[in-house]
């Protein structure tokens, strides 16, 4: 792609060499615009998950409830509910696994697109400007998408090992979500990591959500002026909601007592 400067007559530049058409999804994904479209879709899936996940987690604040005649932590019920989703249509846990696979697929695609576009852009300007740039519109969020993204990725890994598989969780009990949460987040460094990661995520979404409207080609004078607002709103909600958990845990609002 890198242009070397050559002379001589120019002609026939648009005469297509009949290359066999690739299957349309592959074909579509092979261009930058297509990749951005995929990033947007996977981004949307991500956003949907994050919001759902956050709302679910808010149940932690409901503390203990009466469930089938016994005292349990509401959020544990929620966890169980997820695993019981669509039972008896699907066996226990299947639906959840379906969702998980969707998420994994999305992250993988999102990542691959991000990676290959980043490489493309590198090659598009191998020699940087030698003087300082004076950006007008591009902001911190838009210029750090890769880093905020990677941070989130790292967090997810840590997070799974902590709260899903329990490797990094002292005395992890499968399904005892409330207990695991408290155990994990009452450790100051861990709490700090959660806070940092979610701020990074917020920044990523601040640009990402606005950006996806463009990538999806959703552009209409009637709602254009909302796009930035929606992005800011979602980013803020995610940060506030998610950051509240570590803070409240440290503050003792979320604190686990064994229920006899």
């Amino acid at each position: 792609m890198s242009q070397t400067f050559q002379r001589g007559p120019v002609t026939g530049t648009a005469v297509k060499k009949r290359s066999r058409r690739k299957p349309f999804l592959v074909d579509y994904y092979s261009t930058a615009v297509g990749k951005k479209y995929v990033m947007a879709i996977t981004g949307i899936i991500g956003v949907a998950f994050i919001i759902g996940h956050m709302v679910g987690n808010l149940k932690a604040y409901l503390g203990v409830i009466e469930h089938n005649g016994e005292q349990v932590y509401d959020i544990d019920v929620y966890g169980e509910f997820l695993r019981e989703l669509l039972v008896p249509i699907l066996p226990h846990g299947y639906a959840l696994w379906g969702l998980r696979l969707l998420l994994i697929g999305a992250v993988v695609l999102h990542l691959h697109a991000a990676w290959s576009l980043t490489m493309l852009n590198r090659n598009a300007r191998p020699v940087k400007y030698q003087g300082a740039r004076d950006y007008q519109i591009a902001n911190f969020a838009s210029r750090t998408m890769r880093w905020s993204g990677v941070l989130v990725l790292v967090f997810i890994a840590w997070h799974l090992a902590d709260l899903t598989w329990g490797w990094l969780n002292p005395g992890f009990e499968y399904g005892a979500i409330y207990r695991n949460l408290d155990a994990s987040l009452s450790r100051i460094p861990v709490a700090a990591l959660y806070i940092a990661a979610n701020i990074a995520l917020g920044i990523h979404l601040f640009h990402g959500v606005w950006s996806l409207f463009q990538s999806m080609g959703w552009n209409n004078p009637r709602f254009n002026r909302w796009r930035k607002g929606i992005a800011t709103g979602i980013a803020a909600a995610v940060v506030v909601g998610n950051v509240s958990f570590p803070i409240m845990t440290l503050a003792g609002v979320i604190s686990f007592q064994p229920l006899s």
Binding site: P9, V10, T11, G12, T13, A14, V15
Partner: peptide
């Protein structure tokens, strides 16, 4: 440009 693209014209810029 169309003619250049399709080979009808050779452009010397």
């Amino acid at each position: 440009a169309r003619q250049i693209g399709q080979g009808g014209v050779r452009l010397f810029n």
